[in-house]
Design a protein around this nucleic acid. Sequence first.
DNA 1: TGGTCATGTCAACACCTGTTGGCCTACACT
DNA 2: AGTGTAGGCCAACAGGTGTTGACATGACCA
Lengths: 183, 183
Amino acid sequence: MRRSAEDTKATILAAARERFAAEGYDRATIRAIATDAAIDPAMVMRYFGNKEKLFAAAADFDLRLPDLAGVPRDQVGTTLAAHFAERWEADEALMVLLRTAVTNEDVAGRMREIFSGQLAPMAAELSGDPASAARRAGLVATQALGMALCRYVLRLPPVVAMTRAEIAEWLGPTLQRYLLGPP
Amino acid sequence: MRRSAEDTKATILAAARERFAAEGYDRATIRAIATDAAIDPAMVMRYFGNKEKLFAAAADFDLRLPDLAGVPRDQVGTTLAAHFAERWEADEALMVLLRTAVTNEDVAGRMREIFSGQLAPMAAELSGDPASAARRAGLVATQALGMALCRYVLRLPPVVAMTRAEIAEWLGPTLQRYLLGPP
DNA sequence: TGGTCATGTCAACACCTGTTGGCCTACACT
DNA sequence: AGTGTAGGCCAACAGGTGTTGACATGACCA
């Protein structure tokens, strides 16, 4: 069949996202991605150059943190927890990154950039104390990513069984304390 | 050189643990492990059968949870957090499992077994409420593994910078609430 | 001293990977 | 209708992987 270049590129990218999300960088082969996209492996190279660049294109990620300025100060934690619980499931970008960052130093660096570029500034603005803001953001990351890890990657049954609302209820107070609680 | 079979086996196992911990299952090659152990790759096969069995031998893991029965009830969280902070660094078994479970369903299953065989029973004994115990244990896992992920795998700078004592102080109240707090 | 067996080495296998260059083919334009 | 070109396919390469079998070699026992 014959498609426009843009269509083909988008098809490849979609297939790549799924494979990378499900299997991580190493196990997701270009051949498998090409088969999913019903296309020849050589096309992947033509459109994306090489596997690394394909991954980079598939893994651009925005936390899309909500604006917490207008949220009542004592509900910041719950709001944030609810946001994460939704965000993880909105698309596969987080899975793509998480499954790969664990064994790929470059991608781990990319997660550090997301952390310092998106999460840390939010904590700084919220707490007003630049000295402790980075640590507070780091603690938020441990809980948020830990939930993602146990729920979507390891699939611990009791964690999978929780609803998004229950996650917000349980993690809310934790994030609240990490962000705004006593040092 | 010529060694006893047990010595060789132990040398291979030590090298395998390091490689698996640092690179995960896929990227840790038998050839690299053999080189580290100053030995021929064929010896690995002779002593362990195949790569999967070598991994299984390298990844047996015991959380070594402390006995929390004698701990004052309001210090359970901090005690547990301090234990985790030490346990992660005691040996490389956790890294071996974590780096591999993310892209290997069998090993993910093994982590679920560790969870249900070691962590969940502790929560059940502690809370006395079998109905909610599994969920409470799951929540503990999200925070504990999230800390390990951010500190040792992703190496988020503010999380790496924390001392073990600080980790215990910050995570203690979280684990306390997950285990014994209001539902 | 001669022989046996555990310990170790070597070379090769079959397979899979990312990647490349040449070739085909359908469509749009003149 | 003829032709240029963008979109697509095929076959192959070079390198790395787990794994295997045949062969060497040292230590120990009769």
